[in-house]
Design a protein around this nucleic acid. Structure first.
Lengths: 210, 210
DNA sequence: AAAAAATTCACCCATTTATGTGATTTTTAA
DNA sequence: TTAAAAATCACATAAATGGGTGAATTTTTT
């Protein structure tokens, strides 16, 4: 038996969802609410397996509701429900620990299937959403595997540079003369093809050397 | 009619897949191969809609095959096929533009459904994989929204600093005197609570000001 | 065993940066 | 309509940085 809470501001849709789900074998709607103003308390007392969370709600929207719940509870499966599959909301929802993201146009049978999937640790997503998720993934630049052949000591120096250390401080930290620090830094600049501290730092961040 | 290429080293599974898919209404297998050594050429000449790509293949594995194809073709849908849903491969595949990731234990009917989904721009994923993808998403640290109240001009200066510009270059770029650049930078340092260029650059990267 | 790379240190010097202390004009906010 | 913030410029100066050249020792690779 999968126990649910439903958050949806539209009364008709709220009732419709409740009837549909509660009337289905193996599903039980513990409660349905028109906003998230009490979401933390409700989740705490009802202890649902799955939450259906509409995104576009007044006062406290679904994303905020999601965040509120996740501050206290990382167990319950939260399925975001929305009319729009816009990039920004998808990203924010998934960043904040939503377990799935489905569109309201999903047919009833499919919806029940999705809830089941969410309850068993899955991550149900409407096809268009899944596709956008993958696109976002591909956009994350993968750390380049080249570490520019920096030697151990050179990497250490670069890391301290990134932390904002001056040559003097680096020398103290590494127990070497300041001229040795210079010497290492010169090598680092050569290898990174830069000629200033800030460029080196920027490159270190961009290429995830640090 | 969805046209496919199949890459799978296991002869039995390769034949099985080919028979199953080619024998189904609306699907046509253009070719099936035991490795990716000629994948670029094959994709170029067969022009498939979907590629089924086994990950665990000898010589050139599926991830490498994926990369090879994507170097020349970003259109074709590539569905990764594997026995294991291990984190590392999922991440690498999705980073390199795979359109879906499904396990070999997927039942035939579901497999055809997945292929259809891939062909129509979807992103079919086995539940366990989707769930892992979301977990990875949640791990990506979200950019802090604080921009430290930098003014427009101050942001511009900082951006140029990040690009490795010297004060002189910044002055030229922004059509202002070098002393004005100094004065902006002083303000920036105050607001970021730093006192060197490289620290500012590092902070800009960390806090996604740039 | 020989060659290459890494690590260490030194000296010089021009340029850049960081910081202080002003001031004027424009724009924005109270 | 004032006051505050932003944007502009100037002068001065100590400290830090970048680049050049050179060299001795140790470690790694071939």
């Amino acid at each position: 038996m999968i126990k649910l809470l439903i958050y949806e501001d539209n009364p008709l849709l709220r009732e419709g969802l409740t009837m549909l789900i509660d009337g289905s074998e193996g599903f039980q709607v513990l409660g349905s609410f028109k906003n998230c103003s009490n979401v933390v308390h409700e989740v705490g007392s009802f202890k649902p397996d799955v939450i259906l969370m509409d995104i576009d709600m007044p006062v406290v929207n679904g994303i905020e509701g999601l965040k509120l719940v996740r501050q206290h509870n990382t167990e319950v499966s939260i399925l975001m429900l929305t009319v729009f599959d816009d990039n920004k909301n998808i990203f924010e929802a998934l960043q904040n620990g939503a377990n799935g993201y489905i569109l309201k146009k999903t047919p009833p049978a499919k919806l029940l299937e999705y809830i089941q999937e969410a309850a068993t640790g899955g991550a149900p997503m409407t096809a268009s959403v899944a596709s956008q998720v993958l696109k976002m993934f591909a956009q994350i630049n993968i750390p380049s595997d080249n570490d520019y052949n920096l030697s151990e000591r050179e990497k250490q120096v670069l890391q301290l540079l990134v932390k904002g250390y001056s040559y003097k401080l680096i020398a103290a930290e590494m127990f070497i003369a300041i001229d040795t620090v210079r010497s290492h830094i010169k090598k680092v600049y050569e290898k990174l093809h830069v000629n200033s501290k800030s460029e080196a730092v920027a490159k270190a961040f961009k290429d995830r050397i640090v």
